[in-house]
Design a protein around this nucleic acid. Sequence first.
DNA 1: ACCTGAACACCGTTCAAGT
DNA 2: ACCTGAACACCGTTCAAGT
Lengths: 210, 210
Amino acid sequence: MADSGGTGAAALRSDAARNRARLLDAARQRLAGGDTTLGLNALARCAGVGVGTAYRHFPDRQSLVEGLATEGLKDLLDAAQQAAGDLDPAVGLERLLRAALSAMAADSVLAEVLSTATPVCAETIGLSRELGVSLEGLLDRARCAGLMRPDVGADDLRRLLVGAHSAAQAGSDPEAARERYLAVLLAGLRHPAAGALASRAALQVADTRS
Amino acid sequence: MADSGGTGAAALRSDAARNRARLLDAARQRLAGGDTTLGLNALARCAGVGVGTAYRHFPDRQSLVEGLATEGLKDLLDAAQQAAGDLDPAVGLERLLRAALSAMAADSVLAEVLSTATPVCAETIGLSRELGVSLEGLLDRARCAGLMRPDVGADDLRRLLVGAHSAAQAGSDPEAARERYLAVLLAGLRHPAAGALASRAALQVADTRS
DNA sequence: ACCTGAACACCGTTCAAGT
DNA sequence: ACCTGAACACCGTTCAAGT
């Protein structure tokens, strides 16, 4: 039941760790070229390891994607925790959503992981849960301040964000679309009854930035 | 250059038309079961035709999907043209977006076609273009009435709609999520400066319904 | 002009043998 | 405990032969 080491995962043998790193590097290389297939055969050849080794480390495409995205997910969690601590929840929310959209645009595997409801790797599951907790806390504060509609939870927001991301990514000029869709999403999230008051507050907030 | 017949596509030989229909039926049958693969081998076997015949009618998955979705696309075009003729553009827009989301939820291939920027079949291209024209007209009227933000075009709306659809479909209880995300999207689309006036008008509009 | 299905090529996955 | 790569199974696609 109890773990041997301090970390969640059992320590890998040195050659295993090296092979795993090589596979992830090879995957990033192939992603940098246009290959989104991430076939384990091609990956193994590219990494200089046997096919079986690739399958040992990453039983399916999903665990490979999660392995590739953990770093980005950690960064996003940092951003979420920082946003959750922001004085003005509306400012924190806008910063977090913008950061998330930028991160997804820069890192397609992160977008893929965020679009899955239930990850398979233990580490990813943990990070997702923490992310959800931070976000829910932020949303709670925004709701209490009357800044946000009450019928949208953290998981709703995750899905809406992924939706906005793929919408922005679908056309030409994704950066411009991203900013417009973010504006639409933020405006849509505001509490309906808050009306002019909330939007006036939002405008003031916007003035303090840039 | 000029076409032989009255319709856009050349008339099919009777057996060819029959085989095409059988393939589409088989595809719908397999979709009704959980198979989203739509492999042409399985389809041909299921339809009782040779594999080559399947490939002759549908060179790739995309043209098959478009073939499956044309009916739904026509219905959606009808809805868009009706919405474009609505007295109140805000009411027309809400009706159209709700209808589109329902249609996509009921017909996954329609959602797939709407998510592609450039269809491959001539008929689908034509329908998409008409849909875009109707929608743009509706948006123009809404913008002129000061009901809508000016930086969102018909293609933006198509992409946002697809995004909202996949967001709603991702979780449990898609119907409830659909209605909530539609509300978020509609609120987000309203002109920022319109403020309380626009939302009061929207509430009145909501009162006249149901 | 259209249909058929055997044949080919490719790719994902496994597993016995090895260190 | 981990690695290797040949071998298998499967599936998408083509194309020569037929009507």
